Amino acid sequence: MTTTPAAAVRAALPRLLTTLAPYQAAVVRIGTAGTWGAYLLREWGNRRVLYGDRSPWSAELNDRLLADTHAFTALSWSDGRWWFEAVYLLALLSAGAVALGWRTRASTVLFALTVLSLQNRNVFLGDGGDNLVHLMAIYLVFTRCGAVWSLDARRRARRPGRDPAEWGEPRALADALAAMLHNCAMLVIAVQVVLVYATAGWYKVQGARWQDGTAVFYPLKLEYFTPWPELSGLLGGSLLVTFALTYGTVAMQVGFPFSLAARRLKNVLLAVMVVEHLAIALLLGLPFFSLAMVSADAVFLPTAFLLAVQGRAAGWWAARRAARPTGEAVGEPAGAVAGEPAGGSGGSDG
C-alpha cells in the first residue's frame, strides 16, 4: 500500500507537536551554561582587560567594528566601568540560572543577551569554543531545555498544574506550537554540530600536514599548548602515535555525518569524539573549547543512556536519603528527584 505525502505528514504531525529530546536539551543547557559560567569565573580577575574599560580593544574601536557588522552588545550603550561590571555579573548569574534550570524561559533569553554582549565587545578573544557557546545560547532560547533536570521541573513536580487536555484551545495551540519550535531548534543544533565536524574534517583533508600524518605533532611541541610537557613529549615523540591521531581525527570528523544513518556506529564515534575532546582539554590546555564541544555533542546522546544515568542518580539519591537518621528526610515527589516534566508534552519552562 502506497503512502501519500499528505498521509505521511498527518501521521507524523502528533509526534512533531510533542516535545522531543528533552533530556538531550537539558544536557546541552547544563553544559553550555556551565562552560560559559566557568570561563567567566576563571577570568574574573582579567575581566576589565578582556571586555571592560582596560581592554586594548577600546570601546571606540569596537564601535567602529559594530557599525560594519551590526552585532549586538549591551556594552556599547555605555563605556562606564560600573555598567560593564553589572553586565558581567548579570552574565554570571544568568549562566548559573540556566545551568540550574531556574525560570529557564526567561533566563535563557538573558543568558543569550549577556553572551552576545560580552563576546561582541571583543571578538578577537576565544579559542573556537566561544563561537559554539555563542550559537548554542541563541538556539536554547527556542527550546524547552528546562523540561527535565531543572529546578523548574522540580517545582512543577511539587505543584503540578492542570492537565493539558483540560486547557482551552488557544493555550493548547500555543503549547503545540512551542513544542514544534523546540523540535525545530533541536534539529538546528544537530545540524550545526554536523556542519562543525563536516567542515573541519574536509578542510583538514586539504591540508598537507594532515595528508602526511604529522599535523598533531606540531601543537604538541608548542609551549603555549603544552601544560604537561612530559606527556606531550611522550606522545609527540612517537611517529606511529601522531600518525594514528592525525588520521583518526580526520576519519572521525569526516565520517561522523555519515554515521548518523547507523545508530550503533554513531554512538561509538560519539564516545570516541568525547574522549578526544577531553584529551584536547588535558594535552593542549583548552578546557573550555572541549567542554563547549562536548556540550553540543550531547544533542546526539541516546535517550536510553540518559535515562539510565537518571535512574542511577535517582537510585543513589534514594539510598542516601534512606541512610539518613529517621526524621531528617523530608518527603519529595518521585518526579522531583527524577526531573520528569509535570503533565503534557514537556510543560512550561518557567
Rank of each mutant, 00 (worst) to 15 (best):
P325R: 01
P287W: 02
A304S: 12
Y247C: 00
L301C: 12
P56N: 03
V191N: 05
T35A: 10
G343C: 08
L110W: 15
G236A: 09
A298T: 04
R29E: 06
W102F: 13
A33H: 03
Y51E: 04
A174F: 10
T143G: 03
W228Y: 14
L16I: 05
A304C: 01
P14G: 08
L89H: 11
V309I: 15
L235P: 04
S150H: 01
G207N: 11
A106R: 12
R171L: 13
T303H: 08
V9Y: 14
L16W: 13
A172Q: 10
V205M: 14
L89A: 15
A323G: 15
L113H: 07
T114G: 03
S232C: 15
D212K: 11
V109M: 02
Y224P: 00
R321V: 10
V27Y: 01
A12L: 11
L66V: 15
P227C: 13
V254D: 06
G346F: 01
E60H: 12
R64Y: 06
A176D: 14
K266R: 15
G129H: 04
S78P: 08
F72K: 02
L140W: 02
W316E: 12
A12Y: 04
P56R: 04
T114W: 01
A12Q: 09
M136D: 07
D349M: 10
D349N: 15
T226V: 09
P219G: 06
A91I: 08
G331E: 09
A342F: 02
W44M: 14
A153I: 01
L283P: 01
L151A: 04
G168D: 11
S295V: 02
G331N: 01
A329E: 11
C184G: 12
A296R: 06
G31A: 07
R156V: 00
Q211E: 11
R121K: 13
L270N: 02
A296T: 05
Y247A: 01
G343D: 07
W316G: 07
A215F: 09
G45S: 07
N183I: 06
L116C: 05
S290W: 02
M1E: 12
G255C: 05
Q119M: 03
L118T: 05
G126Y: 13
V337K: 03
R320V: 10
Q253N: 10
G350V: 06
A208S: 10
P160E: 09
T108S: 13
W202V: 15
D68L: 14
D297G: 03
G315A: 12
T32P: 00
A97H: 08
A97L: 14
L17A: 11
L135D: 07
L222P: 00
A25I: 07
G285S: 07
A33Y: 03
L100S: 07
W167N: 11
D53P: 10
F84R: 01
E85L: 14
Y247T: 02
R154A: 14
C184D: 07
S76L: 09
P164Q: 12
G52Y: 01
V133Y: 01
S78D: 14
Y88K: 04
Y197D: 00
S58Y: 13
L278D: 02
G146W: 00
P14I: 06
A292C: 11
M293P: 00
L231N: 04
W317G: 01
Q24L: 05
R105I: 04
P302M: 07
L222C: 02
R321W: 03
L173D: 11
V337P: 00
L41Q: 10
R15H: 13
G237H: 12
